[in-house]
Write a protein that binds this DNA or RNA. Structure first.
Lengths: 403, 403
DNA sequence: GATGTTTGTTGACAAGTATGACAAACCTCG
DNA sequence: CGAGGTTTGTCATACTTGTCAACAAACATC
């Protein structure tokens, strides 16, 4: 149910609006905020003042720009005071980072790990020591200034939205893991921990800071070992009933295809996933990123089998994208991970296939672009997840955090 | 950009909230509204009073219910004062109806038409005379009470959201038709005209008054000649960038399949559409609804070929539904049109296939149900489209309508 | 240095809801 | 039948928030 609006909600909404504008536009003057929001000078003064008092934005003295009139003070999001702890859990690597409210990564650490240490307890322990290393990087005098407002965790699996439980992470062998609880006891602090699916977080980051900026309806298609994705409709992430939305890797595209690890047949990822691509090129299906590089090299030097594999990849990619476009009507499709890396090599066949398959192609002008943030997308996305409540209710969260 | 909130917006939002509550809960007392919205008695009194003054709700004297305490006046949506004109354009039929704010159909007329009269000008003329008949049905003394607040038009084709232009309606042979403009000049009145896709409108109606009530994340799958659909995420219709979202009939499910009328290959509707079903059963693919009845009869009396056709239909239906469920994570899938009619006959094989194909089936509990509104769904949906602005800003629209 | 322009600041005003006191309308109990 | 308890509508007042208009400050140009 949409809850009733009372007077203080108004303040909350406007506070969030100003903060959002500052994040989108970067540095901007108070008078620009007046123009952008439609609020009056006095209202903006009060809102910016409150955000400054909360430590979320900083106001620099006015800078003359050669135009007549009194110059307006420049406001920008504080890039040090408030940070989020972003934790990434992959199969063969874990990472941790502090990310500022403007999306910049303050510092980060990563650690490879053997595939034998992916159990929950081991993972949690490894993450804890990684976070210790992360904190040690920060000089003590800066430490006082930082305030860790929340923690976002990326997991390659299905995450239930309401309670953050990792319902299933096939590549890690996890089932029904209350990751947030485990991490909370180890990390010690009382900061709220949010868990999200890696592809969803990548989509979130690309939507706000990457290739999806300016797009209200975006599809993010990320190829790794499997294929994941995230949807943004009307500017908001589509999470679904339980938070499982975006499992586009399991769109059925080929009823005569291979059995997927999910148990179904002919899922999209069995056709466009990394192993399918490598296998078609005659390379080791489990060769990973280096094998993909090898494939690209071979194709560039005229290897027909590699070229054919890429053409086939483009075809299957186009089939899935066309379907998603028909269902969602996005203005932008962002390709991430594996697909971003091989996109230059399959640009032409992909566009050709898309033009052929796209429903009423002539009417559509969907941009299919590569991701802009690369591997940092997940980091930034995890932080965005942690910043979520703050962006929604700046004053409420900050005053609660102090207490 | 989310616009800034000023004090009057607060009123608007609460007014809309109360009206929405009354529509959802039907008749309900003022004290129930207090409990539901969280607003105070005095606020509710003011809001209900304003809605009553606008002619949107009526307040009945309190009814004693045997409980202690002063009884609360009963409020309900006025089912006569404000109506929407719902116009439905199908290939071989057109319809018009007045629909009240509570979703009840005041009166309606329908007219079959030959397939030779589907051109835009002819359709507009036929609709105009149909609306005349519709108005003639209403006794003059009631006419004074009615106020037609808007007009919603259902079209079997792609409708661009921003301007209501019918970009393409293949079955009618329409391309880039400014239907709203043409209808406005013929209908005469100054009422705003909204155009929408038939499946999207069916989804809207089922979501608000039909099988999707209580569901925040719904997929509506409607089978007619083609296959259309509508999506509801977080309680709101997903329209997409241009308004084309929901073209689920053109999900690619079979790369070895038939060529679709959209130009692509192996679209879902080439496998689950009416003609595919009939063809598999050895019936006339263009036999229409009566042929489907024939098929169901044959299957019920043991005709193996008819039974096989239904099994095959269930399989392909499950394939598409599974994909959509994986991408969207709905809590409810509503089957409409053809699929609603044949659902009883393919319940078992459908559920079996779904259990087999659904990603991580054990974790999911998606309800797959038949539509509840039948052919009235589109009527009600068209009215809902027309009521949209009113539901968003009751006072603003009503005062503008009077002026 | 005078003038014009843009912008921050300030205090009075308007819109909307909350609060609390009181009255009205119902029940139950004696 | 009347007293007491409970729930609810009504009313006057207070609080929050943004607007408006007047004024001052900071810039450019002439």
């Amino acid at each position: 149910m949409t809850s009733a609006a009372r007077t203080p909600q108004l303040r909350r909404s406007n506070l969030a609006l100003v903060l959002d504008q500052l994040r989108r536009r970067g540095t901007c003057s108070r008078s620009q905020l007046v123009a952008a929001t439609g609020l009056t000078r006095s209202a903006i003064a009060g809102l910016v003042g409150e955000l400054e008092a909360l430590g979320l934005v900083v106001e620099a003295p006015s800078v003359s720009e050669g135009r007549p009139g009194r110059p307006s003070p420049v406001v920008r999001v504080d890039d040090r005071c408030v940070v989020a702890l972003a934790i990434e859990i992959f199969v063969d690597e874990i990472g941790a980072a502090f990310v500022a409210l403007d999306g910049s990564i303050v510092n980060s650490v990563r650690a490879a790990r053997p595939r034998t240490r992916v159990a929950v307890a081991e993972t949690v322990a490894d993450v804890a020591s990684l976070v210790d290393r992360l904190e040690a990087q920060i000089p003590p005098h800066q430490h006082a200034g930082h305030q860790v407002i929340g923690c976002g965790v990326s997991v390659p699996g299905l995450v239930r939205d309401v309670d953050g439980v990792v319902v299933a992470a096939p590549n890690l062998g996890w089932i029904d893991v209350s990751l947030a609880e485990s991490l909370a006891s180890v990390l010690g602090r009382g900061i709220p921990i949010h868990v999200g699916n890696d592809a969803d977080l990548g989509a979130l980051a690309e939507s706000r800071f990457g290739a999806g900026v300016g797009s209200d309806h975006m599809i993010f298609v990320s190829g790794e070992v499997g294929v994941g994705g995230g949807l943004v409709a009307a500017g908001r992430p589509v999470v679904g009933h339980l938070g499982f939305a975006g499992e586009i890797g399991h769109l059925p595209v080929n009823p005569e295809g291979r059995r997927c690890r999910c148990g179904s047949i002919g899922c999209w990822e069995t056709e466009v996933g990394e192993s399918a691509l490598l296998e078609r090129a005659g390379l080791d299906p489990d060769g990973g990123r280096s094998a993909v590089e090898e494939l690209l090299d071979r194709a560039a030097t005229g290897d027909q089998r590699a070229a054919n594999a890429l053409t086939s990849e483009a075809r299957w990619l186009a089939i899935g994208i066309a379907g998603l476009v028909n269902v969602f009507d996005p203005d932008t499709v962002v390709l991430g991970g594996l697909f971003a890396r091989i996109l230059p090599a399959l640009r032409e066949p992909l566009d050709a296939e898309l033009a052929d398959r796209r429903y009423l192609a002539a009417r559509r002008d969907v941009a299919v672009v590569g991701a802009a943030l690369g591997p940092q997308a997940v980091t930034v996305g995890a932080a965005e997840l942690a910043f979520g409540p703050l962006l929604d209710d700046p004053a409420g969260v900050m005053s609660a955090a102090v207490a």
